[in-house]
């Protein structure tokens, strides 16, 4: 029968995504959760309980790093938005044809090389014997070499740089769909650049802003390379802590608990962000 056939087709098409979700997302998380609620009471002896989570809340270093990671990610997202919006507006509204394609491509080219290589690029620029340090010395602005790596500012630069494309792309898409006539109508009715930006452009671009922010926030929160390489030991990042629990300390139970806490944190921040901006997930992630 036709309906049976089409139903079979439906399930066949659905199978890859279901398989992917089950095998790679849901199963590992269930495993992670089971590990996170196992407390080690002796060699090869485990009991079920929330002791690992308790460790997190009793040790200030852990939840300080946790809060720091959240706040820095939010700041990185805000900075990316501030930098990305003018770029996206310029590409979407002020350029045409070839220039537009070229600029869009230029935004994308850095992402053709691996994140590791890009981060090393920043290290070459910022380190003590790096390009900037030498330049400042050559100009006579400083007496000795300057170390610009291994602090929060360097890490922030790295985070914004790594994720700006993921802000620019959804913004260009939504701004592209803004009819130029609306902006002209705004001017015609006596609007100024600021009031048009506030009342016409930003409300229209809101789904793009929110979806860009969600992606950038998630990427920053879950970033491991950039905070480790550019932030160094002074800029702890929560993913670094998870790594050290799993690999250095061999404490998979605590590491799993941290992993779960990070998942809860990111979901919570996204939820609050959506509520504050009055957007819904289907609105921002739906077809633009």
């Amino acid at each position: 029968m036709v309906t049976d056939k089409s139903r079979l087709g439906f399930y066949l098409l659905l199978a890859p995504i279901l398989l992917w979700l089950m095998v790679l997302i849901i199963l590992p998380h269930i495993g992670l959760f089971i590990v996170s609620i196992s407390e080690k009471i002796g060699p090869r002896e485990y009991a079920t309980g929330f002791g690992n989570y308790a460790v997190f809340f009793t040790e200030p270093l852990y939840w300080n790093t946790f809060a720091r990671t959240a706040i820095m990610s939010i700041v990185a997202t805000a900075l990316t938005l501030l930098l990305g919006f003018p770029i996206a507006y310029y590409i979407a509204k002020l350029t045409r044809g070839r220039t537009k394609t070229t600029l869009f491509l230029m935004c994308m080219i850095p992402f053709w090389v691996s994140e590791l290589v890009r981060t090393f690029g920043w290290m070459i620029l910022l380190r003590e014997t790096g390009v900037f340090s030498n330049l400042l010395m050559a100009l006579g602005l400083v007496d000795g070499p300057v170390e610009m790596l291994y602090n929060d500012a360097a890490m922030m630069v790295g985070l914004v740089y790594t994720s700006i494309l993921f802000m620019v792309v959804p913004l260009v898409t939504t701004l592209d769909s803004l009819d130029d006539g609306l902006i002209e109508a705004g001017y015609d009715l006596g609007g100024t650049s600021t009031s048009i930006l506030r009342e016409i452009v930003i409300p229209h671009a809101m789904p793009g802003i929110v979806s860009g922010c969600i992606v950038v926030f998630m990427l920053s929160l879950g970033n491991y390379l950039t905070p480790i390489l550019l932030g160094g030991k002074d800029s702890l990042w929560f993913t670094g802590m998870i790594y050290s629990q799993f690999i250095t300390r061999f404490n998979w139970e605590l590491g799993s608990a941290f992993g779960f806490l990070l998942l809860v944190l990111s979901s919570l921040v996204v939820f609050i962000g959506l509520k504050l901006t009055g957007q819904s997930l289907s609105n921002t992630m739906g077809p633009t």
Binding site: D179, E184, A185, D188, L189, E199, I200, P203, H204
Partner: peptide
């Protein structure tokens, strides 16, 4: 500039602001 002129324009596709 257009925002200082005593003229108003009805656009071809009306250009009503869909967000308001």
């Amino acid at each position: 500039p257009p925002n200082k002129r005593p003229v108003s324009m009805v656009f071809q596709h009306l250009a009503l602001f869909p967000t308001m």
